[in-house]
Design a protein around this nucleic acid. Structure first.
Length: 856
DNA sequence: GTAGGGTTAG
């Protein structure tokens, strides 16, 4: 603090060095005496400009001690620099000094104070000053006040003030217009913006002022959601600058046309405008959105030359861009971008944490970084950080970690932040704790649409669609009509349980609600129909879509693949490439699984290689599993095993299960044993592997081992997830567990089951009790088998539907082998078509045959 | 003394 005393405006700093070293010897009294009012004033302003608040305050104190009372001009200048440097604390202090001084305030100072409180978000103080001004208000006061309201989200008040001003007889200038228009750039107030726009047209400010132009761009972009109109305004503006270009680029990217945004950047440069850190930050986000690593890298080298990468926002955008392109193996570059940032703040820490979370498989790394952020960097997390962390916990499916993070955010005082609570709900929903999710939801102070959507999505995902639809009805009661997310979640809820009736109902509602052209909603529709078994309806929606993205194509290709219609899937994939749509890694899972189901091994290899060589997507676990499946299906078991060994990372249980399934079908016990052991090492309770292993031991007479496995299965109560099946009858879903007797029509169902059992036995069906995992008497095994959930659902379907309709049954796990056999007999016995969707695919069973060719 | 653009929950 004392150091500042020796710094005068006329003498260079170095001249004071000897004095600084022996500053105790110099008496401040002597120094004070020679200081004049003007030097103090200069010093004050300089200190304010460089943000030395404490020093400026002590200078003020020194002035009064030296009986040099600052005059109004000094205060005015001081206030101005406080505003310019956003030094609100000092500004407030100056305000109180002015009041103490008893000076009479003029409208210049009052306007400055108004601006100070407006910018610091203190609406109340701004209002107080504005009211106190009475007739001395001028255009500056009005526009500062309107701006204050717009800034703090009091949009209605902003427009009200604008109207009041006009009624007062003032003629609004460009500042007033842009502030008032800015208050209208939301759906709710866009109509008021239109009225102001009409007024504006009578003045000359529309084309002439860049800020007014920017406000109008946002009125049409954000308020009306119409990028075309926003572009019209942009094109009509006589004067453009980097800000208006950047705004237009940003909105274009945000509103679903990131490709156009990048093109606009080139236009901007061609027309001679210099992109700045804001521009790069936005265009990098556009690259992230598109997954355009190459363009992102070009931008990176461009901004590297200008030192713009030193900007925190740009740095964060780089981290984000490389993370979102992680399919191209660029997560390392994301980390490098983070490590090379000159300094780290909450935002950059959050960016890298979010990056790891979004890249999919690095949730633990995100948690580690969070701890590093807390303990080493001592940076306090904010709500963005927790949003990312909670997402990580949801992905990791670790409820305990989720609870710990939940406790942390309570400690950091963020438990009342709506965004954070919505993330908490999502985390609990993803970790199958709907009760905890519900608790968090109920505790929410204000439930918004996102809260409802998260809960609806949670119920849908946890196969409780009835709760999902009930909550949807509540949203209508509470007045928040659903948006695209709501419909997408409800459709995926309907899809997850295969409730095509509910899905059709939602289809009707969303058409009425005006979402017929919404890409996100239509993608969900395609997926819903496909997953509900009505692949042709899915295809129709897809065909009628005007605007298709990679998700649309992937959804329909996946649909055809799951239905075993490989040729149509591959045909569409070709068409997709012809259309110039770039496939992503999920598209390739669909393509490879289509090849696999159709036994097209050459095509599978071709696509597997080209996905990396031509498209640049590194194959992940799912792709390897598809290849193992394809090889196994055609009996190339050894090649499949070798392929697994050649993988660049350790094969997971899923990959080995593919091999195991193939071994079972092709009767290769040795390799089957190896696969089962590998699975059990990673998932010790996997029922399929245990059963297979025990059967293998039984067939080679190793009864001791059989007993061991059976015992351990019993002890561990092995079934992780209770198997259940369901069927939709008249838009209502009926769910059944093994041996379930809770259904009101249970008696009829079991009578039907008995009858069916007798008929198919006569036709040659023999129950395969190997599929019973409990160690019980053979007779009891047969009984358990006959009461498997899929059989109960089928019996219920037979007694509840007319003969002409196919029966659609859904199961959360893979369909049991014995049930699969029984259903083929039942299809013959009853002449009915049975469609079963299990965890893995669709089985279309007709006349004793299944579309999966007994391989799944 | 008054105005505009950049991480965000589903």
């Amino acid at each position: 603090m004392w150091v500042s005393l020796f710094v005068s405006s006329t003498v260079p700093l170095s001249a004071h060095l000897p004095q600084l070293r022996s500053r105790k010897k110099v008496t401040s009294a002597r120094t004070l005496q020679i200081r004049t009012f003007e030097t103090y004033k200069d010093q004050l302003i300089r200190q304010t400009e460089v943000g030395h608040v404490d020093e400026a305050i002590s200078t003020l104190d020194l002035m009064s001690r030296a009986n040099l009372t600052p005059d109004l001009t000094t205060y005015s200048v001081l206030l101005k620099s406080c505003i310019r440097t956003r030094n609100f604390r000092l500004g407030q202090l100056v305000h109180s000094r002015i009041l103490e001084s008893g000076l009479k305030l003029d409208s210049f100072v009052l306007n400055s104070l108004l601006s100070l409180y407006s910018k610091s978000g203190d609406q109340k103080m701004a209002e107080e000053i504005f009211e106190s001004m009475g007739d001395t208000r001028d255009l500056v006061s009005w526009s500062a006040m309107i701006s204050c309201y717009a800034h703090s989200g009091s949009n209605f008040e902003a427009v009200q003030k604008f109207v009041e001003m006009v009624q007062f007889g003032e003629h609004p200038n460009q500042f007033c217009f842009s502030a008032a228009l800015r208050a209208c750039s939301s759906r709710e107030y866009a109509w008021m913006g239109l009225a102001i726009f009409a007024f504006l047209l009578k003045t000359g400010y529309f084309e002439s002022d860049v800020c007014v132009g920017c406000a109008l761009i946002d009125l049409f972009a954000k308020g009306f959601g119409d990028l075309g109109l926003a572009k019209n305004v942009f094109d009509a503006m006589h004067e453009k600058n980097s800000v208006s270009w950047t705004l237009m680029i940003t909105r274009t990217a945000q509103m679903g046309s990131p490709e156009d945004a990048i093109e606009m950047l080139l236009d901007m440069v061609t027309e001679g405008y210099i992109p700045d850190s804001f521009t790069f930050s936005s265009t990098l986000s556009a690259c992230s959105e598109l997954g355009w690593l190459y363009i992102g890298q070009q931008l990176h080298s461009w901004l590297f030359k200008n030192d713009l990468w030193l900007d925190v926002y740009v740095g964060c955008s780089l981290v984000d861009m490389y993370a979102k392109c992680a399919a191209y193996n660029s997560m390392g570059d994301s980390r490098k971008a983070f490590d090379r940032m000159p300094e780290h703040n909450v935002m950059s820490w959050t960016a890298i944490i979010t990056g790891y979370v979004q890249s999919g498989e690095c949730g633990m790394e995100a948690i580690k970084l969070y701890l590093q952020m807390l303990t080493e960097a001592m940076v306090k997390p904010n709500h963005f950080t927790f949003a990312a962390l909670l997402k990580a916990c949801g992905n990791l499916l670790d409820p305990n970690l989720g609870v710990q993070i939940h406790n942390h955010l309570v400690k950091f005082g963020l438990s009342s932040d709506d965004c954070v609570v919505n993330s908490v709900i999502s985390m609990y929903a993803k970790t199958d704790r709907m009760d905890d999710a519900r608790k968090a939801f109920e505790l929410l102070f204000e439930k918004n649409l996102v809260s409802y959507n998260t809960m609806i999505d949670g119920y849908a995902r946890n196969l409780e669609p009835n709760e999902a639809f009930e909550l949807y009805n509540q949203t209508k009661i509470s007045g928040t009509c659903g948006d695209a997310f709501t419909f997408a979640s409800l459709l995926s809820g309907a899809a997850s349980i295969g409730a095509v009736g509910k899905g059709e109902q939602m289809h009707g509602r969303l058409l009425k609600a005006g979402f017929a052209c919404n890409q996100h909603v239509c993608n969900s529709l395609v997926s819903m129909y496909a997953r509900c078994g009505n692949i042709e309806a899915a295809f129709q929606v897809f065909e009628e879509m005007g605007d298709r993205n990679v998700v649309s194509w992937t959804s329909i290709i996946t649909g055809f693949a799951k239905h075993g219609l490989a040729n149509r899937a591959l045909e569409l994939f070709k068409k997709m490439l012809d259309f110039g749509v770039k496939p992503n890694e999920i598209t390739y899972v669909a393509v490879l699984s289509a090849c696999s189901h159709a036994g097209l091994i050459d095509d599978a290899w071709r696509h597997f290689h080209s996905m990396y060589n031509e498209v640049g997507i590194k194959p992940r676990m799912g792709h390897y599993a598809c290849m193992v499946d394809a090889l196994g299906r055609m009996g190339s078991l050894d090649t499949a095993a070798q392929f697994i060994k050649s993988m660049p990372f350790r094969a997971d249980a899923h990959v080995w299960r593919s091999l195991l399934g193939a071994c079972r079908v092709h009767g290769n016990t040795e390799l089957g044993k190896l696969a089962a052991m590998e699975i059990l090492e990673q998932e010790p309770n996997d029922p399929a592997a245990l059963v297979l292993l025990s059967n293998l031991y039984a067939s080679s007479g190793k009864w001791e081992n059989v007993a061991k496995i059976r015992k351990s299965m019993k002890v561990q109560n092995l079934i992780k997830e209770a198997g259940c099946s369901w069927i939709e009858i008249a838009k209502k879903v009926h769910k059944f567990y093994v041996g379930d007797t809770k259904h009101p029509q249970a008696q009829q169902i079991y009578e039907e089951l008995d009858q069916l059992g007798r008929r198919i036995r006569e036709m040659g069906y023999v129950p395969d009790t190997n599929f019973v995992l409990h160690e019980v008497e053979e007779e009891l095994k047969e009984q358990i088998l006959s009461q498997h959930s899929e059989k109960i659902a089928l019996a219920f379907g037979l007694i509840s539907t007319s003969k002409s309709m196919p029966i659609r049954i859904f199961k959360n796990l893979r369909v049991c082998g014995d049930c699969h056999t029984a259903m083929k007999y039942i299809s013959m016995a009853t002449g009915r078509e049975i469609v079963v969707r299990d965890y893995n695919r669709f089985h279309h069973i007709k006349d004793g045959k299944c579309s999966c060719n007994d391989y799944w």
